[in-house]
């Protein structure tokens, strides 16, 4: 009898652990230990901060992505936004000699342009999915390619250096030794985490992701929630782009390329279900950190750069297998839905 009770308490703990998104943290801890052993520099404060700084762009993009993935949709164009939004701001801010249009908007207005255009692109995605009824895979794929091309058009194919302090502040400044970009990422993660868990908007997202018709019949304005999820995703990708431009102190034409794949990987590793309705920010953050730590370790361990990419891919697959197994085991009894 005692043994049984004991076991079920452990089971309950395990289920809660997985359900709340903590699955990957032990793995992360293990990696950190391994890292400390193979590369002494790994555990230095500078390096740890460096990792956080590097993942904050990916982190914001992944959080944005999780809005739309939670409702069972996806948004590939986020990658395009990461590059396009800051580029648009940069060309409007930079002087003609620096490759801009010579409009020379003041810095804060540039920031507004970046986030505003990102939000508008998200709004357009929402319109295509909700009103026109397009499949988000195809509509956002189209937009991704379109945005990539537009970046080249508006910048005339040239990167813009030092676009202006107000635009680059978030991505480059430090407060008490901590990069502002890390603070932004953490603040957004906490805020969005609370919204997903405790806000009526979060409840609506999960309900729609799992049974859209039931959410509708319960009186939720499903179309509006879907539409707004695309806007939030766009805004966060825009913010990620601004951070990236700040860190590089330039708007680069190839900015953000490939980030959407890492974002999907981070989300899935973090326990977000691409089918919708499952996952949370604690998990998303673990996925993002895992990818960041792996990249960092491979570099520190002086793995030849050719191998870094392939190894990252392999590790992503292994991690995804782990999360899937964990969530399958912990859900125990199959539900009847």
């Amino acid at each position: 009898m005692m043994v049984r009770a004991e076991r079920s308490r452990w089971q309950a703990f395990g289920q809660g652990f997985v359900a709340h998104g903590f699955t990957m943290y032990p793995v992360l801890l293990l990696l950190v230990i391994v890292g400390a052993v193979v590369a002494p520099r790994f555990l230095s404060t500078i390096n740890l901060i460096n990792i956080l700084e590097q993942v904050s762009v990916l982190g914001l993009t992944t959080i944005g992505l999780s809005f739309v993935v939670l409702i069972g949709r996806l948004d590939l164009s986020l990658e395009g936004i990461v590059g396009f939004a800051p580029m648009l701001a940069a060309v409007l801010m930079a002087s003609a000699s620096a490759g801009g249009y010579g409009v020379e908007l003041p810095g804060w207005a540039g920031l507004l342009v970046a986030l505003g255009s990102a939000g508008l692109i998200g709004f357009f995605n929402g319109f295509m999915v909700v009103r026109v009824g397009l499949n988000p895979f195809i509509s956002t794929l189209g937009l991704l390619v379109l945005l990539r091309g537009s970046i080249l058009i508006i910048s005339n194919g040239r990167s813009i250096y030092s676009p202006g302090a107000a635009l680059t502040y978030l991505g480059s400044a430090k407060i008490a030794g901590l990069p502002v970009s890390v603070l932004v990422f953490l603040a957004v993660a906490v805020l969005v985490g609370c919204i997903f868990q405790y806000h009526r908007y979060g409840r609506a997202l999960y309900a729609i992701g799992r049974n859209e018709e039931a959410a509708r019949a319960a009186g939720i304005d499903v179309d509006r929630v879907i539409w707004s999820a695309f806007v939030f995703a766009g805004l966060l990708a825009g913010l990620a782009g601004v951070l990236m431009t700040g860190r590089l102190d330039s708007a680069v034409t190839t900015q953000g390329e490939g980030i959407i794949f890492s974002a999907f990987a981070a989300a899935v590793i973090g326990g977000v279900s691409l089918g919708g309705g499952k996952g949370n920010i604690i998990g998303v953050v673990s996925g993002v950190l895992l990818i960041g730590v792996i990249n960092n370790l491979l570099t520190l361990a002086q793995v030849p750069s050719f191998y870094v990419q392939a190894s990252t891919g392999a590790v992503i697959i292994v991690a995804a297998v782990l999360t899937t197994l964990a969530s399958r085991r912990s859900s125990g009894v199959k539900t009847r839905t």
């Binding site: 806000h199 999960y206 049974n211 319960a218 539900t335």
Partner: peptide, 29 residues
């Protein structure tokens, strides 16, 4: 088809019917 969300608990399902009533000014439940 439209009565309940199978993977969510009883509490969350019932609350879906009255999200506005059960949340405060900022929309937190």
């Amino acid at each position: 088809a439209s009565g309940y969300v199978g993977l969510l608990g009883v509490r969350e399902n019932v609350t879906l019917g009255g999200l506005d009533l059960l949340s405060g000014g900022l929309g937190f439940i």
